[in-house]
Computed example of a mutant assay.
Amino acid sequence: MKKILHLGKDRGHANFGWLDSHHSFSFGNYYHPEKVQFGALRVLNDDIVDAGMGFGTHPHDNMEIISIPLSGELAHKDSTGTNGVIQTGEVQIMSAGSGIRHSEFNHSQNDKVNFLQIWILPKARNITPRYEQKAFAKEGKLNSFQTVVSPSDTNAVWINQDAYFSIAVLESGKELEYKLKNQNHGLYVFLIDGKLNIEDQILEKRDAVGIWETDRIGFKAETESEFLVIEVPMQ
């Protein structure tokens, strides 16, 4: 088993006034040679956007882009004709494929929105751009891994990669075990909130750890903890 620890306090940081963003991997003006990617995971940004503000229309291609609101609502519009709102408890994916243009704004005129934006390198290039969004029940992640992104699980949003995202809320003292789908995959764990023991590695809020060369990983909550696990090909 190999591990790499990414402490929340060591993330890249950019504050533009309307946008307060923390970067787990090299992004924009932040570059760290040891934090370019974790396997197929290229970007994990923790963004807080002021009321009514957001990202104007801009292009992407050949990237799987996942948005997960942690609080608030995110308005999304793109060149596939999609125009909607992503609420907390929902997960959105956009396959940029051969090329797409989109915008993202805080849907509220009063409150901030906090969301994770995650980029995954695609399995097949230049596919037809696509968009998908689903809501997930809170009880589905209580003391259990709730799969929200998958290439094969029809209850999750589909991704153009052999990648799997799961979210869990683990009550204090409870334990879970995650079994990887493929021995050539790795698991990147991002602690949204709480205090979590992962194979004798303690994580605090917004810390992360990447683990590979193993087939299963154990979790124990030191306090009630919510966390995202991202399983990706390492090559």
Rank of each mutant, 00 (worst) to 15 (best):
T154P: 06
R11Q: 12
E231V: 03
Y31C: 11
V149Y: 07
L142N: 05
Y178R: 08
A156K: 01
S152F: 12
H23V: 04
I100R: 01
D193R: 06
I93M: 07
V157W: 00
N114S: 13
L121S: 11
R11V: 07
D207G: 06
K174I: 02
I118R: 01
D162K: 11
K123V: 03
I198N: 01
Q87V: 05
L180A: 07
D61P: 02
F136K: 02
S108P: 13
D153N: 15
Q183K: 15
R101I: 06
S166M: 09
F165Y: 12
H23T: 10
K181N: 11
G12V: 10
T128I: 14
G173V: 07
N155F: 05
W158F: 14
W119R: 03
N29G: 10
P151R: 04
P33I: 06
A124Y: 07
F25A: 06
G210I: 02
P122T: 07
S152C: 10
L176P: 04
I65T: 10
W158P: 00
Q146F: 05
I198V: 15
A208C: 12
K134P: 01
Y178H: 14
E177W: 09
V189M: 08
H107F: 13
R206D: 05
T80P: 03
L180D: 04
Q161I: 05
D20N: 15
R125D: 09
D10K: 15
I48K: 14
F55L: 14
G99Q: 08
M94G: 03
E204L: 05
E34H: 12
L196A: 03
P59T: 10
R11K: 15
L70Q: 09
N83V: 09
N29C: 11
F105H: 11
Y30H: 14
L44I: 14
F25T: 02
H13P: 09
D10R: 13
Q109S: 12
E204W: 01
G140H: 00
S152R: 10
W212M: 03
G186R: 00
E64K: 10
K138C: 08
D193S: 15
Q201H: 14
E177T: 15
G173S: 12
F16W: 14
R206G: 01
F27P: 00
L74Y: 06
Q92I: 06
P59S: 10
N126M: 15
R11C: 13
K179M: 12
K220W: 01
S144T: 11
V149I: 15
F219S: 01
G89W: 02
L5R: 04
I198R: 01
H32W: 05
